[in-house]
Design a binder for these strands. Structure first.
Lengths: 348, 348
DNA sequence: CTGTTAGCGCGTTCAT
DNA sequence: ATGAACGCGCTAACAG
C-alpha cells in the first residue's frame, strides 16, 4: 500500500509537503497541492492515522462509555455525541458497561491503550475510580448523566431532584396523599436525586414518613411490575406512583391493569424518560423528560473544547432542566374524581 | 509517559520481552513475567496500541456503519455486535449515515485511514460503491440487513420477502381482499423484498393489480399517517394495511383512530419490526420480527473469522428467518366479523 | 512556501 | 527462553 513517501516522489515534493496538503497544516501553493492530489489519486493513497497519531499524539477518536446503548435514553445521547463528533472530524467508539465496574475498568484500559483523545463517561457506579485513572493519564474526560463524589471533573447531567420534586408536587396538587416511589437499588446519583426530590415534596406537604412507600428494584419492567404488586398490597393503598424510569412505569401499568385497577382513575402514574415520541403513536404517560440529544451534543462540545485547550483546568458543570410533560397518566384532581364518583380506591 | 523501553530497563530485560509478556506471544518464564508485571505496575505503563498497530498491522478495532443508531432495530444490532466484539478484545466505532451515500463515503474513508481491522456495513443505498472500496483495500467487510447488486461479499440479512408474503397471506386468510402496502421510497433491498412478498401473496390469491394499492413514503410516522389518509380515501376502501416498518404502523394507527376507524375491527394492520417488547407494556401489533441482536452477533462472528483468515474468499450469505408474531392488530376472520355485524367498512 | 533530520513506540525478523 | 537491529508511516522541530 502506498505511503506518503511514494506520493511525495510521484509529485516531486518532500513527504512533509504531502503531509501539509493532507492535513491543511502550514501553507502550500495551489499548484503543488494539485500535483500532490493527483499523485494521491493515482496511487490510491490512504493516509495512515496510526502513524500520524503516533507522531502527533492526536487520534481524532473519542469514546463514549455508557451502561447500555439499547436504552433509548442513551441511544439518543449517543446520536447527539456522534453528530457533533463527526462534524469535527472525530470518530466515536462506544462501550456498554452494564453498570459493571470491572467492565468499565476493562474498557477504560483499552481506550487508554488506543490513545483516544477524550472519553465521555456515564459512570457505572458512584464508586467508580475510572475517572481518576483517565485524568491521571491526562486524557480529557466529560462525565455524563451521573455525579461522582470527590472528583473534580466536567459534568453534564439533568436536574433529577427538581424534576422528581415537581412530579410529586403535581400529584399532591391533584389531591394524592398515598404516593409511592418506585426506584432503582443502585448507587447512582440520578436515582438518589429522584428519591430526594420525592421526599422533599412530601415533607413540604406535611407528609412525614415516606420510607414505607419507597420501593427499590432492578432496572426492568418486571421489577416495576413486582414492586407495584407489593405496593398495592399495603395499607394505606397508594393512589399514585412515581416511577423513576419508563421501565418501572410500564411494569406498573401492566400490573395495575392485571389487578383491574384503572390508570389514572384509580392510581395515577408519573414517570421519567418515556420513550421518544417518534417511537409510539399515543403518548399516555406524564413524564419528566431529559433532553438526551442535547446532553450528548453539549457533552461532546465540552469535550472538544477540553481537547483543544487541555490547559484550562476549570471544570464546567452543566445541569440541564428536565421538561415536565403532562399527559393522561397523572389524571385530574381527585376532588373532581370523588365528586364524579370515580375511583375505586379512596384515600382513607 | 512510560514506554516499553522504560519497563524493560526497570525489569532488567529487553523491550521485546516486555512485548511478549503484554501480548502473550512467544514464551517467557514465570519469573520474568513477574518482574515485568511489577515494572508495568510501578511505572503505570499503558501499551501504545498506535505503535503496536503500526508495526503489526492489526488495530483490534472494527467499525459498524449503519443508517441511524437511534432506530431500535439498529440499536439492537449494535448491541449484538459490541458484545461479541468486546469478548474478542475488539473495540467498536459506530457511524450514522442517515442513508446518505456521501456520508457513507466520508466515514469509510476515515475508517480506512484508521486502519480498522474490519467493517460491518449497512449500505446507505443499493448504488453504494463503498463495499468495493473497502474490499480494494483488503479490509474485511460484512454487509448487514441489505443486499447490494453485483458485489460478492459476506452478508447477513433477513428474509423480508417471505415475511411479507406470510403477513399478507395471514390477512388473506382472514378474508381481506383490499390490502394496502405502505412502503418506503428508497432503493434498498429489504423494501423491495417486502414489496415482492406482498405482491406474490396477492398474485397467488388471484388478486391481480396491486399497484394502485402500493404507497411509498419517507421513513417517518408522519409519512405513515399521510399514506393512510390517502389510502383510506380510495375506492375500494382498504380493509387491511401491510406496514413495511413500525413507524408506518404507528402513523397508520394514529390516522385510523383520528378517522374513527377501529383497528382491527374495521382495518387490520400488520407490520415489521415492532419495538422490542421490553420497551412497552401492551404489545398490540401483529408483526414480522427480525432477530436484530442475533444479526449483530452473527455478522460480528463472521467478521472475526474473516479477519483471522483473510485468505478464505468464500462468502457466507446468512439469511435469517423472521418470526411472525400474531397479536391483536391483525384481527380475526372477516367472515366472523360480518356475521357478528362488526366492521363499518364492508368489502364491496 | 518548502525541505532535512530525527524519532514517536512498538513488533518483525533473525540470531543465540 | 531471550535479545539486537531495524523499520512500520508519519510529523515535530528547525532550517532556509
Amino acid at each position: 500500500m502506498a505511503n506518503i513517501k511514494d506520493v511525495a516522489e510521484r509529485a516531486g515534493v518532500a513527504p512533509i509537503t504531502v503531509s501539509r496538503c493532507i492535513n491543511n497544516s502550514g501553507f502550500c501553493s495551489p499548484e503543488t497541492r494539485k500535483r500532490v492530489e493527483a499523485a494521491i489519486e493515482e496511487l490510491g493513497f490512504v493516509p495512515n492515522r496510526l502513524a500520524s497519531g503516533l507522531r502527533s499524539k492526536r487520534t481524532k477518536t473519542i469514546a463514549l462509555v455508557l451502561t447500555d446503548i439499547t436504552d433509548p435514553f442513551f441511544t439518543t445521547i449517543a446520536r447527539g455525541v456522534e453528530d457533533i463528533a463527526s462534524d469535527a472530524g472525530y470518530t466515536v467508539i462506544f462501550c456498554n458497561t452494564d453498570e459493571s465496574i470491572s467492565k468499565e475498568q476493562m474498557y477504560v484500559q483499552m481506550l487508554l491503550e488506543k490513545r483516544v483523545d477524550g472519553i465521555l463517561l456515564v459512570p457505572a457506579q458512584s464508586t467508580s475510580n475510572s475517572i481518576a485513572l483517565i485524568q491521571k493519564h491526562n486524557i480529557s474526560v466529560v462525565v455524563l448523566d451521573r455525579r461522582v463524589p470527590n472528583i473534580k471533573t466536567d459534568l453534564v447531567y439533568c436536574d433529577s431532584e427538581e424534576a422528581a420534586y415537581q412530579l410529586t408536587r403535581l400529584l399532591l396538587s391533584l389531591g394524592h396523599r398515598a404516593i409511592v416511589m418506585l426506584n432503582r437499588s443502585i448507587n447512582v446519583s440520578s436515582c438518589q436525586d429522584r428519591l430526594n426530590g420525592y421526599r422533599r415534596a412530601l415533607l413540604e406537604a406535611g407528609i412525614p414518613e415516606t420510607t414505607g412507600q419507597e420501593y427499590q428494584g432492578a432496572y426492568t419492567q418486571e421489577s416495576g411490575y413486582e414492586m407495584t404488586y407489593k405496593a398495592m398490597a399495603c395499607s394505606p393503598k397508594p393512589t399514585a406512583l412515581v416511577a423513576a424510569n419508563y421501565s418501572f412505569a410500564y411494569g406498573a401499568l401492566k400490573a395495575l391493569r392485571e389487578m383491574g385497577v384503572r390508570t389514572p382513575e384509580d392510581v395515577a402514574i408519573v414517570s421519567f424518560d418515556d420513550l421518544p415520541t417518534t417511537l409510539y403513536p399515543f403518548p399516555f404517560l406524564t413524564v419528566a423528560v431529559q433532553p438526551a440529544y442535547e446532553m450528548g451534543q453539549k457533552a461532546m462540545e465540552i469535550l472538544l473544547k477540553k481537547i483543544s485547550s487541555p490547559s484550562s483546568n476549570c471544570c464546567e458543570e452543566i445541569i440541564l432542566p428536565m421538561e415536565i410533560v403532562i399527559r393522561q397518566s397523572s389524571g385530574v384532581s381527585r376532588a373532581n374524581e370523588k365528586s364524579k364518583g370515580g375511583g375505586v380506591l379512596k384515600i382513607p
